[in-house]
Computed example of a mutant assay.
Amino acid sequence: MNLPDIAIDRVVLGEHKTLKIYIHSTLEGTHCHRCGQPIDHAYGHGQEIKLRHLPLGEYKIVLFLRPKRYQCRSCEGHPTTSQTLFLYPASLYDERLRAAHAAGTGEQHA
């Protein structure tokens, strides 16, 4: 698939000729969304993100990713930030978090 900084965990053949590819980032760390400083204190994973990829012949490709989360120890309240990758814009993930939080089912994003 030639996706830099991504490793494949497993591939599942789904219905209607869909390949479900479960991936994770091989990068470590991100930048704090509040102060912008690099952070590397791991704090679990965010909610799973489902991304459509280019088809492979007659197969639809869907990527599944749980982004890594990191905690900033410099900012007051030690906020957490999810790692974003080139596969999706940060705004996509932020919109999903806001919607989940508004529905009362999402995780906190300080």
Rank of each mutant, 00 (worst) to 15 (best):
Y43W: 09
L87F: 07
P89Y: 02
K20Q: 14
S91M: 05
I21Q: 01
I8C: 10
E48S: 08
R66I: 00
D94N: 11
D5L: 07
G36S: 10
H31E: 10
Y43C: 12
Q108W: 06
E95K: 12
D40V: 07
D9N: 14
T84E: 09
H41K: 14
H16C: 06
K20H: 15
G77M: 08
L97D: 05
V12S: 02
R34A: 14
G44E: 08
L27F: 00
S25M: 03
L54P: 00
H78A: 15
V62A: 01
E48H: 00
V12M: 10
R96W: 10
S25F: 01
C72Y: 05
Y88W: 13
G77T: 03
L87D: 05
A103I: 01
L51H: 06
D9V: 06
R66E: 10
P55W: 06
H33A: 11
F86T: 07
F64H: 15
H45K: 15
S25W: 00
I49C: 02
R98L: 12
K60C: 04
C75K: 11
I49Q: 13
Y59P: 04
F64I: 01
P79G: 10
C75M: 08
R98S: 11
L56G: 02
T105G: 03
Q83P: 05
F86L: 08
A110Y: 02
L85T: 13
I21W: 02
H101W: 04
L65V: 10
L54W: 05
H109P: 05
S25E: 04
D40W: 01
S74H: 15
G36H: 12
Q71H: 02
G36T: 11
G44M: 04
R96Y: 06
G44K: 01
A103G: 09
E15W: 01
L85Y: 04
G29A: 07
C35M: 08
C35N: 09
Y70W: 12
A100R: 14
C75N: 12
L27N: 08
I61Y: 00
S74V: 06
T18N: 04
